[in-house]
Computed example of a mutant assay.
Amino acid sequence: MPAGSNAAEKLRKMISMTVQNDSGTTRRLSRFRWAAFALVLPVAVVGAVSGCGDSAAPKPAHTTGPAAPAPAASASAAEPANSAPAAGQHMITNNGHRLAFYVIPGHSPAIVLDSGGGEDHTQWNGIVPQLSKATGSQIITYDRAGLGNSDEVKGPWDGRAAASDLQAGLRELGATRNVVLVSHSQAGEVATYFARANPGVLSGEVLVDANVPPFFTDKEIQRLVALTTPQIAALKKQPSTKANRQLIATSENFGPTHQAYHKVSWPDSVPVTYIGSEKTPFDGSPQDAQRWRDAAAAFVAAGPGRTLITAKGSSHEIPQDKPQIVVDEIEKMVAARR
């Protein structure tokens, strides 16, 4: 989901324009149809989507915290780093593609921030300085494949492959134990697969209005796919850009991907705080909003060491709407892990 106060509105206008260009009529999405589209697709790629094509210029490295040095050399993730990584951008190779990771030095436990669908590491710029000052922890953010300064990967978006990328990056950076992972929206899927594969790496998790397995029933998957199919078809007729390709990749194979995700469970050894938004991604559709809340409650009730709190008055964009709640819950998780 988008960073910044007007990102979602920009993309909503872009999608409306896409439909207008395709059909010759102006047709805005209903609030619920927009919510479904936002959930299925990464929606923070508005800058590239709204442009005329791919930009040749890379995005700047992390600007929060200490001044960033030149990017580190690309490296294999076969062995963990022997010493603490330097501040700034590190390009790390996994399965033939390069991923951009960003480090602010500090002590253990490391805090790793994983952005919502379509967002790069800059989604967290508003809270990283405060987290660094309050905790003194090492902080790691990154761009998932196809976003920010990371390479694109062909084919449908796959949460398991994204978890492999995260694992490779953390291993190369030496963050292989006592990690507090923070995941917004679509990154909840990455977190779930990562936790299943690496329960010994994580000492805690903060899920921020994140996608959890109980939500993706066959009925809900069918509903989301049906609602977003016209918008996907319209996007495919637009000029191909990095942003468009990421939107489409997330929609491809959505049904089977999320039927499989629905069956995945969170390891009981990793404690979780789930921060739910009051409005949910489905503000305007009470039935679906309640399904989202029920799924979060079911996830928390399914295992030990899980806590559910609500960000009162917040939209799905909790990191922007209620950043202090996110910071407070991360601080609590970090303090409990020392």
Rank of each mutant, 00 (worst) to 15 (best):
V212P: 06
R291E: 15
S285R: 12
E278H: 10
E278K: 08
V43T: 15
S269Y: 01
P239I: 00
S150Q: 04
P69K: 05
A84P: 08
A7D: 10
A311C: 11
Y142A: 04
Y261R: 07
H121L: 08
P2F: 05
T192V: 15
Q238P: 04
I232G: 03
L181G: 15
I232P: 02
V327D: 09
I325R: 12
F32H: 08
D328N: 15
L29V: 11
W34H: 07
S74L: 07
A57F: 08
P214D: 09
V225C: 03
T135F: 02
L173F: 08
D158C: 07
P281C: 09
I232Y: 00
A233Q: 05
Q167Y: 07
R306G: 15
A296V: 15
P42V: 01
P230Y: 02
C52T: 13
G65L: 12
A56P: 06
G188R: 12
V153K: 00
A210C: 14
N198T: 13
D22G: 07
G155N: 06
V334A: 15
E252M: 03
H121P: 01
A77W: 04
E329L: 12
K219G: 11
G169N: 11
T122Q: 05
K219Y: 05
S115C: 04
E205A: 15
F32W: 08
Y274Q: 14
G313C: 14
Q287A: 11
S285F: 11
P239H: 00
F216T: 02
E9D: 11
F216W: 14
S164R: 11
V179F: 04
L202C: 12
Q186P: 05
